[in-house]
Amino acid sequence: AVSDRLIGRKGVVMEAISPQNSALVKVDGETWRATSGTVLDVGEEVSVKAIEGVKLVVEKLE
């Protein structure tokens, strides 16, 4: 799938994300809905860990 190429890519949080709420991230110039197990604020850099349906699963870039 096209989205599989995004695993391992870096992105930027466009809307705050919490474990209860998905929000938008920008990866390679494209906007995607994403979820995370932690709270992520706007502007934080993230890494794509997986794809669940049409959502990216991201975590904060260390």
Rank of each mutant, 00 (worst) to 15 (best):
W32E: 09
K55N: 14
S36P: 02
D41C: 15
W32I: 10
D4W: 00
E62V: 13
V58D: 02
S18Y: 10
R5K: 10
I51W: 05
A16V: 14
V58Q: 01
K49T: 13
V25R: 00
V57S: 03
I51M: 06
M14P: 02
K55I: 15
E15H: 06
E30K: 08
L56S: 07
E52P: 01
G37R: 10
P19G: 14
S22C: 15
K55C: 15
K49V: 15
G29N: 09
V25K: 02
V13P: 01
A16T: 11
I51P: 01
K10L: 10
G53T: 03
N21L: 10
S18D: 09
T31G: 06
S47N: 09
E62R: 11
T31M: 14
A23K: 02
G37T: 14
A16N: 08
V25G: 01
V57H: 06
S47G: 06
L61M: 09
T35Q: 07
L24S: 06
L61H: 07
V2M: 12
K60T: 07
R33G: 13
I7Q: 03
L24R: 06
R9E: 05
G29A: 03
Q20P: 14
S3P: 13
V57T: 03
L24Y: 08
V13R: 00
V58K: 00
T31N: 13
D4T: 11
V2A: 12
E30W: 05
V2D: 10
G37V: 13
V42Y: 05
A1Q: 12
M14A: 06
S47K: 13
K49N: 05
E59R: 01
V48C: 00
V58M: 00
V54Y: 11
G8W: 00
R33L: 15
E52M: 11
V25I: 10
E30M: 07
S36T: 06
V13I: 07
V39W: 14
V25S: 02
A16P: 11
V42M: 06
V13A: 04
E52W: 09
A23V: 14
A34N: 05
K10P: 06
D41A: 14
G29E: 10
L40N: 01
G8C: 06
K26A: 09
I7D: 03
V48I: 10
G11V: 03
E62M: 11
E52C: 13
V48M: 01
S3I: 11
L40A: 03
A50V: 04
K26D: 08
A1T: 12
N21I: 08
V58P: 02
E30I: 08
D41F: 14
V48N: 02
L40S: 02
V46C: 04
K10N: 07
G53E: 04
I17G: 15
V46S: 00
W32Y: 15
I7M: 05
L56Y: 00
A34T: 08
E15D: 06
E52N: 11
V58E: 02
E15P: 04
S3V: 09
